[in-house]
Design a binder for these strands. Structure first.
Length: 293
DNA sequence: TGCAGTGTTGCTTC
DNA sequence: CGAAGCAACACTGC
């Protein structure tokens, strides 16, 4: 489940691998993941040069320069999507690689839904087992801005202050977990990091957002930044589908504290056991002894 | 063996 | 208007 740290890792990888490359061809055996007529998409994209790769919330944005001005690929990975940069000599048939070597022997990398063939002998492959992810073509910077404006602040940027977090929580009686996962409130936090952040902050996931004390809010603010930063340093979490641009796993799953650790002893050695409940229909893991309502 | 669980987002329904 | 539920999808595990 690519959340902020995972999408940011892919962004950083791609900035090293594909800037300045020209797109020679686009192929897909699952054209539905491209949210427009495939032939038209192909016509718009082939021949353009990749000038930048950005991230906003859980969206990856590939900027395409052209004589007529910038266009953008807006990519959302949803549950199982990721991009792999790999040699163009590899072929795809029925969504699977014909030759599977190295990182491609990892089953999570084989569900190829679209390929962008580059002018340096490589290709960008969009692998997505569950096909929730999508690629959209954005015509210009105004259209892009209109889409990206709908997301809340980026939690790792300076503009995200404890005062802003306070405002976000104000008057919301929904469980705090739901509130921090809502992309309109804060951008980039999904189920894994919501659980990890709330454990770190010692706040019960069901605690109503408007009932957090000033101290709770300060601690939560710190935990949001620290956990996301730590996850980024560890190149994300790969407990299930996520892989980086080389098809490799992230390390954060190995150091996570509570996510999918139901029944295990609390890492704080408080004597409690990690419990699993449902919050807003999502599996939620927490220590009932450390995290108070 | 069939069905619940897995998770994000956005749309529908109340 | 906000909250809750569900669809989209494919595969795993009990």
């Amino acid at each position: 489940m690519p959340e902020l740290p995972e999408v940011e890792t892919i962004k950083n990888d791609l900035n090293k691998l594909i800037i300045g490359r020209k797109i020679l061809d686009v192929r897909s055996e699952f054209p539905d993941i491209i949210k427009m007529d495939f032939d038209e998409f192909k016509k718009e994209v082939v021949g353009s040069k990749i000038t930048d790769v950005k991230r906003r919330a859980k969206n990856l944005i590939i900027e395409l320069g052209s004589v007529t001005g910038g266009k953008y690929l807006l990519i959302h990975f949803k549950m199982s999507g990721h991009l792999i940069v790999i040699g163009a000599e590899l072929e795809v048939k029925n969504g699977d690689w014909v030759t599977r070597v190295g990182p491609l022997s990892d089953p999570q990398n084989k569900y190829v839904r679209a390929q962008f063939i580059l002018d340096d002998g490589n290709q960008i492959a969009f692998s997505d087992l569950r096909r929730f992810g999508y690629i959209k073509l954005i015509a210009d910077s105004q259209e892009l801005k209109a889409i990206l404006e709908q997301f809340g602040p980026e939690p790792l940027e300076k503009a995200f202050t404890v005062e802003i977090l306070e405002k976000i929580l104000e008057g919301k009686k929904s469980p705090i977990k739901k509130v921090i996962m809502d992309q309109k409130n804060i951008a980039g936090i999904g189920n894994i990091y919501a659980d990890e952040i709330l454990f770190d902050a010692k706040i019960h996931p069901l605690k109503p957002a408007n009932r957090l004390s000033d101290e709770d809010i300060r601690v939560l603010y710190k935990s949001i930044q620290q956990i996301l930063k730590l996850a980024l340093e560890n190149r994300g979490t790969s407990t299930s589908d996520y892989r980086d641009a080389s098809g490799k796993r992230g390390n954060y799953g190995n150091i996570r504290k509570v996510y999918r650790k139901t029944g295990e002893p609390c890492p704080n050695n408080c004597g409690g056991k990690i419990e699993r409940i449902s919050v807003g229909g999502r599996g939620t893991h927490f220590c009932p002894k450390c995290q108070k309502l």
